[in-house]
Structure formats: structure tokens, C-alpha cells
Design a protein around this nucleic acid. Structure first.
Length: 641
RNA sequence: GCCGAAAUAGCACAACUGGUAGUGCAACUGAUUUGUAAUCAGUAGGUUGUUGGUUCAAGUCCAAUUUUCGGCACCA
């Protein structure tokens, strides 16, 4: 005799077990039609599921994000339904929900083409339009196995085998198609209205590169057609921000197949890169770091000793001369320890913070390269802090503060934090790892920061905190990192030493830290973040002086010279073109300020200022102009002053 | 590295089933001396990523290779 409590606090009593849908029908026909699933005592269940005891119940509709995700999940089944009709030999693997949609991994002879995708999508929508009911049945292990054996679903059978303790399996029947799933799913397919298959890709079975490669079909699905349209429009807008595209149109950098994964920086891109680097250099000085430079190529034995060779030799560039093997540095830490060890240190010297804009090379697998985001040659704003165990927390805290301050100056406030612990392949004893992990985690907790734990994802020498930023279409890129390392400084590794209070030799703790991470990647993210409309302090060209006719040439030259004296990045446009034409070009190049100079301005000793975005700020004298620029540049990229 | 797709002038793209590689913008030259998102006219520009093959004939078909794109795996 279940008593059901609804979200408004009202209760309903039933004589016997009742399904979610029946309760919905009792409340109203319209609500029943809209019901996708139920949330019973906080747990999502199918609309057909029976409630047997006293429970709270919320009806889940497509207005609920959970409802939309259920529809997405059922859309994956729908994809299976359509595929099986069109390609009877297809074997289904897994089909989960992802952000905005779903995918299904499948195996079959025929390689799906983009054209096929359209046909499959058409079939899916036609099937959905019939609003056929989805019927759920719980099957015993034997029945489940028999069902999939009859259908040659090898992958599904493997999934069942891997759940040895499970006695019952949820099966969802979509007309002649059947899929196994914990659910919940739609009561009928009429809820699927706004769906698009987006792309095909390869994916390893169970995410393991030793396994077969399957075909993965990605799709997106939304509650209604407008939401789908909005999403597709948003993706189009996002593509316009792509740093690879803007890198070309704004003449910032290019990539060329003579050097895959290594950027050629053009003058404008170099300026942008340099401003970022100089900002970081100023931060180093403020925060008591010492900047150094170390060799690009070092003897292989050093990398063997550090442990990098063992783990990463396949990804290291090497060279050989005079019968010696060298490796191009993939990290800066071994070099920094050489500089630390140039003389004996006292405990009084610690912490010692050694920084380098370190150019590193990593032979990343060819398939991973991606514009400036994943490259083979990049500069890290790297630093290593040598300190005592007592100093760890204060130093890590200072690093975290610096990360947030720096990101804020660049206009980022959405930052995800990950905390990664010991991996399987690692150096160092477990009690040392215990200590290192505890130190990092405590600092995160003390700072009241939300973070996601990633067990087993740490570096081979220590646990790490990672700071991640999103690119324009939601891909997440790691930028900053703070890693704790008790191993590299030990005698059997690179043997960094200081003399303690006890007059004995000790090995310092080393904190590896980078704020921006890879300068290349960070610049790429900046390009996308600002859509190339950089705040004035970053803009490669801060203003262009545009002459109206030839008679103004000299005045423009003088104005340009004076602005450059103040350190502004100025270009002049003296071309024999109409003003409208010149303004159009510089606007498209996203220059923050266009200064127009004609007879009037020359007479009054002023310039007419047009701000990016088209606003005319009016006439400015030279000193007013300097004030305007100085104030603007001083704001850096901060969202609020 | 794996799966799939793509590569044509500086850029964006075209060239039906194999039959003389085009268009727009940019560039260059000339005219125009111009007031806030495109002045007009002309000129030049390509061994169709590379190598090999099929064919009377290849941008187009086949093979290899390089790079790029979308994912997957990887990411010190």
C-alpha cells in the first residue's frame, strides 16, 4: 500500500504497487504525456517501473535536464535500431550519453561515410515519428545471453560476462531492436524530435589501444528543434574563434609540414607571445624567482638518471655526436638541479625558486597534434622551488595564488582544478607518496578550492594539481600545474643537496610549477578566448593611424613617432585608399584603436579616435591620447577593474 | 600510434560520368587625393602535397608517402 509524496508535499495512497506513469495519469493526462521517467526517492527510474513502498516521487519531463539526457540515451538505442535495419551485420558495443548528445561504438565491415550518416539520421527520425513504445523487460542471465547469442552481439555478451554477480539485466525493446541498459529510457520514441548525427570517428573497444578499433557515431539531441538550432549556431560561432583560423587571418603564426607540431611565429604573433612572456617575467620578479637558461641538449645519461628515459624515451628527440648520445630536453627540471647544485646551499637559503622560459621538445604521437594546443616544441613558463618539507604548504599556496592572479589578469575566471595521485608506474617509496599527496590535498582544502580527484593520474615522480581552461568548443586544455617531487632530488637520482641545521646533508623537496603551462597553448587559448579581439595590452598592433590624403603623411609620421616613444605599438596607413576602405581592413584585423587624421586634426593638433566596435570617441590631443591608452593598457585583461 | 576523411594560386572556394585548371579577395601597375566597414581599370600568379602506376589523355582512377582535419589511445 504505497503512499506517494509528490514535490508539492501532497500525498497519494494506492492499494497496490503502482507505476510512475499511472501516478502521472492520476494527476493529469497532459502531465502523463510529458512524463519521460520518474525520480523515486531521488533515484531515476523508468516510467513503467512499479513503486511498491512509500516513496517520494518527482515526474521527470523534457524540461528537466535528466529528462533530456534520458532522451539522448534512448537516441543511442534509436541509432542502433536504424543501423540494424540498414546494416544487419552491425555489432553494437556501447552507446552512452555525452554532453549535448550521445555516441554508439559499433563494429562492421562497411565504413560509414558522411553520406550514410544522413541516411541513418533520416531513418532514425522516421522511426521516432511513429512514436513506437519502448518496452522494458528484466531478463535472467540465461535469457540475456540467449538473446544476444541469437543476434551475434559479441560485445554485449562480453559486457554480460564482465558482470558475473549480476543475475538480472534490463532489456529495452525498440520494436525488433533490443538493447541492454540500466536505463531509464523513454516510454516511447516520440520524444526524439531534434537530433543530428554529427561525425564518425574511430574508438578502441573499452578505451584500450590493444583492442579492436570500432567505428564511433556521434550525435547531438535536444528537447526541441529550436534548442538544436541554437546549438548548431553556437558551434558555428565557436568555429570562427578557432585559433588555427584566426592565426591565419590575423597573420599570427603558421604551421608547415617541414616541421609538424612546431609553430612559425609571424611578427604579430611574436609580439603577442612576447607580451605574455614579459608579463610572466614581471610576475617572477615580484614573487622572488630567479630566472635562468639551460641547454636544449643534454647527455642521455642525465635523462636515465632522472628516470625520464625509462618512461618517455619513445617520446624524446635524440641526437648523437662524438660517440655520445644526447637527448633534446623534454623537461627543464634536470637542468635546474644542475644550476641548484652549482654550490652547496644552507637551509637558510631555502626556498630557492628557479625559473626558466624553457623550450622543450616532445615527440608527441602524430595523431595528437592540434594547432598550438598540442605541439612538439613549446616553451614552458617553468619553475622549480627547492624547499624543506615544512615550507611545502606555504610555497604551494603561493603558487595557487599566483595562478589565480595571473589567470584573472588574462581574463579567465572559469578554471577547473584536478588533483592527481600516484600512478602505477612511479619512482619513490609509498610513505613518501603518502606525505606528498597529503601536503597537496591539504593545501587545496585550506584554500577552499573545489577540485576533482584523479586517482592514478599523477606524474611518475609525484602527485600534481592541474589547472584547466576550456577552448571555444568546450575542449579542455591543461595549463598550470603544481607537482610535488621528493624523488628527483635524492642521491640515487639527481642528488640535490643542502646543509641542515644539524650540519648534515639533506635533499630538498622540489616543487615543479608552471602557471601558463605551454606558452604556445596559452596563446592559442587567448586567441580563442578573445576571438582575436585582444585587450589593448595584448594586441599586437594597438593603434593604426589612418591618413585621409597624402598631405597628412608628415603629420601621421610625427604622431606615430611620438606614440612609439611612449612604448605603444603603432602602425601607419598612408595608402592611397579611401578612409572607409582602410577602416574596414583594420577593423577586420581587430585593431583596438583607429586614429583618423585629416585637415581638421592637422590644424588642431589632434587625432580622431575610433574604438574597436565602431564607436567614435571624438578628438584627442596627444596627451589625452596617451592617457587613454595608458589607462586601457593598465587594465590588462581583467573582466572587472 | 590507431580508425576515417581531406589536400587545387597568398586566402576562401569551383572544375558533370577522365578531355585546354577557373572565380572572388589579396598582390602588382595605372588613374583617382579620398572623412569612419570595400573607388575604377588593367597585369601577373598554379608541375593540382610528394612519388610511382593505369590510360591516347589524370586535378579527377589505383598504390605508396607526407601533412592536415574529426575522434580514440597517449600527454613528464
Amino acid at each position: 500500500m504505497p503512499i506517494i509524496t509528490l514535490p508539492d508535499g501532497s500525498t497519494q495512497q494506492f492499494d497496490e504497487a503502482v507505476s510512475v506513469m499511472q501516478v502521472a495519469q492520476g494527476i493529469g493526462e497532459g502531465l502523463a504525456r510529458a512524463t519521460v521517467a520518474g525520480r523515486v526517492n531521488g533515484r531515476l527510474v523508468d516510467a513503467s517501473d512499479l513503486i511498491t513502498k512509500d516513496s517520494s516521487l518527482e515526474l521527470v519531463t523534457m524540461r528537466d535536464e535528466d529528462g533530456v539526457n534520458i532522451m539522448r540515451h534512448s537516441s543511442a538505442h534509436l541509432l542502433g535500431h536504424a543501423l540494424k535495419q540498414m546494416y544487419p551485420d552491425v555489432k553494437m558495443a556501447i552507446g552512452p550519453v555525452v554532453e549535448n548528445g550521445f555516441y554508439y561504438d559499433i563494429e562492421m565491415e562497411h565504413k560509414i561515410t558522411p553520406d550514410d550518416l544522413k541516411q541513418i539520421e533520416k531513418r532514425m527520425l522516421a522511426l521516432a515519428k511513429t512514436k513506437y513504445p519502448v518496452i522494458k523487460k528484466m531478463l535472467s542471465r540465461e535469457e540475456a545471453v540467449a538473446t544476444f547469442e541469437a543476434r551475434d552481439e559479441d560485445y554485449k555478451l562480453e559486457l554480460i560476462r564482465d558482470l558475473p554477480n549480476e543475475t538480472e539485466f534490463g532489456f529495452y525493446f525498440h520494436e525488433e531492436y533490443v538493447d541492454m541498459c540500466v536505463g531509464p529510457h523513454l516510454p516511447h520514441m516520440g520524444f526524439v524530435k531534434a537530433l543530428k548525427l554529427t561525425h564518425i570517428a574511430g574508438a578502441y573497444w573499452r578505451g584500450n589501444s590493444d583492442n579492436t578499433m570500432l567505428q564511433r557515431i556521434y550525435g547531438v539531441a535536444f528537447s526541441d528543434k529550436q534548442a538544436l538550432k541554437d546549438y548548431l549556431l553556437m558551434m558555428e560561432e565557436a568555429e570562427k574563434r578557432d585559433h588555427r583560423k584566426l592565426g591565419k587571418t590575423l597573420d599570427l603564426f603558421h604551421l608547415q609540414d617541414v616541421s609538424p607540431g612546431m609553430a612559425f611565429w609571424h611578427p604579430k604573433g611574436t609580439t603577442l607571445y612576447r607580451v605574455v612572456e614579459e608579463y610572466m617575467r614581471a610576475q617572477l620578479i615580484q614573487n622572488d624567482y630567479e630566472e635562468i637558461r639551460t641547454p636544449l641538449i643534454m647527455d642521455r645519461s642525465l635523462w636515465e638518471k632522472s628516470g625520464h628515459w625509462d618512461k618517455f624515451k619513445d617520446n624524446m628527440f635524440t641526437t648523437e655526436t662524438d660517440n655520445r648520445d644526447y637527448a633534446v630536453k623534454p623537461m627543464n627540471c634536470p637542468g635546474h638541479i644542475q644550476v641548484f647544485n652549482r654550490h652547496l646551499h644552507s637551509y637558510r637559503d631555502l626556498p630557492i625558486r628557479i625559473a626558466e622560459f624553457g623550450l622543450v621538445h616532445r615527440n608527441e604521437p602524430s595523431g595528437t597534434l592540434h594547432g598550438l594546443m598540442r605541439v612538439r616544441s613549446f616553451t614552458q613558463d617553468d619553475a622549480h622551488i627547492f624547499c624543506t618539507e615544512e615550507q611545502i604548504k606555504a610555497e604551494v599556496q603561493a603558487c595557487i595564488d599566483l595562478v589565480f592572479e595571473t589567470y584573472a589578469d588574462f581574463g579567465f575566471d572559469q578554471i577547473a582544478i584536478k588533483f592527481s595521485t600516484r600512478p602505477e608506474q612511479r619512482v619513490g617509496a609509498d610513505d613518501v607518496w603518502d606525505m606528498a599527496e597529503a601536503a597537496l590535498e591539504e593545501t587545496l582544502k585550506d584554500a577552499n578550492l573545489d577540485y576533482v580527484l584523479q586517482p592514478g593520474e599523477g606524474a611518475f615522480y609525484g602527485p600534481k594539481i592541474e589547472f584547466q581552461l576550456k577552448d571555444c568548443i568546450g575542449r579542455v586544455w591543461q595549463c598550470g600545474t603544481i607537482q610535488l617531487d621528493f624523488s628527483m632530488t635524492q642521491a640515487e637520482r639527481l642528488n640535490a643537496v643542502y646543509i641542515g641545521k644539524d650540519n648534515e646533508k639533506h635533499h630538498p623537496v622540489m616543487i615543479h610549477r608552471a602557471i601558463l603551462g605551454s606558452l604556445e597553448r596559452f596563446v592559442g587559448i587567448l586567441i580563442e578566448h578573445y576571438e582575436g579581439k585582444f585587450p589593448t595590452w595584448l594586441a599586437p598592433t594597438q593603434c593604426v593611424i589612418v591618413s585621409i590624403s597624402e598631405v597628412h603623411t608628415k603629420y601621421v609620421a610625427e604622431m606615430s613617432k611620438n606614440l612609439k616613444k611612449h612604448g605603444f605599438r603603432v602602425e601607419s596607413d598612408l595608402r592611397n585608399e579611401k578612409v572607409g576602405f582602410k577602416i574596414r581592413e583594420h577593423t577586420m584585423q581587430r585593431v583596438p584603436y583607429i586614429l583618423v587624421v585629416g585637415d581638421q586634426e592637422m590644424e588642431n593638433g589632434t587625432v580622431n579616435v575610433r574604438a574597436r566596435g565602431g564607436e567614435n570617441l571624438g578628438s584627442f590631443t596627444f596627451s589625452e591620447l596617451v592617457d587613454l591608452f595608458t589607462t586601457d593598457i593598465g587594465k590588462l585583461g581583467r573582466v572587472s577593474a
